[in-house]
């Protein structure tokens, strides 16, 4: 015990000396962007998209960037204030859960531009909200599923019921009702962003019910559903990025979302002084979402019908996506 203490004491002194010597002041910089993520940046889904968007700002727009991952709800206020105090020009919070904190802090720092992705908080001044049009994307993928199912049973696997996934599912169900009224959509939630095994089991439970097309949305849910369909004839629709590699033989399409496109768009507006604290709804029309390549299973006639729907959505001819955004 005595020796242990002596060793530790040495550690104390050395470390204290070094720590004391390295406190450093932050200099305010013009082109700085900071981002808050509620999960890890390498989740392969929602948060990673945002991370890639931030990297785009760094590499293509020459921003100095900072990132905080795994942000807990209790820390929202202070982190936002922190970045604002450090002279970050753009502060991006990635998720619906940041709404209250953004509203408060945006009032306190009128010169900083705040951006919420996946939420609706905006103040017509310096707080801007961006929503992916999950519902239209759900609708478009739903059309494909409706036309591809042979058993007339389609499965949806979600992670946690957050608004964007919910809206996606509502749009999807609307499309199936519109294009194949005989088909039934069944929905499952795993309640976890990280439990891949449960995502797989949820999909397997659906397959046991006769489902032959599955769309998944939410990190572990995507991984799990893809694992479940691999080696079967069940078709897979991915979300957030082109998920062909998740299940190469089953993948028929993915709804690709580009946070990079959104951020570049908003920051360009911001630099031009045109960002006015609005709610931006971005999707197929704005190029923030698009379909990946179709799988070889999808016949030409079906591709054309789906692409027609995409065009109709872009042209504003279809506007009812089951009530969501």
């Amino acid at each position: 015990m005595k020796r242990f203490s002596i060793i530790l004491l040495c550690v104390v002194m050395v470390t204290t000396a070094f720590v004391a010597g390295c406190a450093k002041k932050e200099e305010p910089l013009a082109k700085k962007a900071a981002m808050l993520l509620s999960g890890p940046a390498n989740d392969g889904g929602w948060n990673q998209l945002a991370y890639e968007g931030l990297m785009t700002l760094q590499n293509e727009k020459g921003f100095e960037v900072a990132l905080t991952e795994n942000v807990k709800q209790a820390d929202h206020l202070q982190l936002l204030r922190n970045y604002a105090n450090q002279g970050y020009k753009y502060i991006i919070a990635h998720g619906y859960e940041y709404g209250d904190a953004l509203t408060t802090v945006a009032e306190e720092f009128p010169k900083v531009t705040f951006i919420q992705i996946g939420g609706v908080a905006h103040n017509n001044k310096n707080l801007n909200a961006v929503l992916f049009t999950s519902a239209e994307a759900g609708y478009i993928t739903g059309v494909l599923a409706a036309l591809m199912t042979k058993t007339n049973k389609i499965g949806l696997v979600g992670a946690v019921e957050i608004p964007s996934i919910k809206a996606d599912f509502e749009g999807f169900k609307k499309a199936v009702a519109d294009f194949n009224p005989n088909a039934r959509v069944i929905e499952a939630w795993t309640g976890s962003w990280t439990d891949i095994a449960k995502g797989k089991e949820a999909a397997l439970a659906q397959i046991a019910q006769g489902v032959d097309v599955i769309m998944a949305n939410g990190d572990a849910a995507n991984h799990g559903a893809a694992e479940a369909v691999r080696g079967t004839n069940v078709l897979y629709i991915g979300w957030s990025r082109d998920q062909k590699e998740y299940a190469p033989d089953n993948h028929i399409v993915s709804n690709v979302q580009s946070v990079s496109a959104i951020l570049v768009n908003l920051v360009d507006k911001g630099e031009a002084g045109e960002l006015k604290g609005e709610l931006h709804i971005m999707g197929y029309k704005e190029g923030a979402q698009y379909l990946s390549e179709f799988g070889p299973q999808v016949p030409e006639s079906v591709r054309q019908r789906v692409m027609q729907v995409v065009q109709d959505v872009i042209d504003g001819k279809i506007t009812d996506f089951g009530g969501g955004q």
Binding site: N42, G44, T194, H223, E227
Partner: peptide
């Protein structure tokens, strides 16, 4: 059952 890794899986 699964062939990949994720934090806290």
């Amino acid at each position: 059952f699964i062939s990949t890794f994720m934090e806290e899986m």
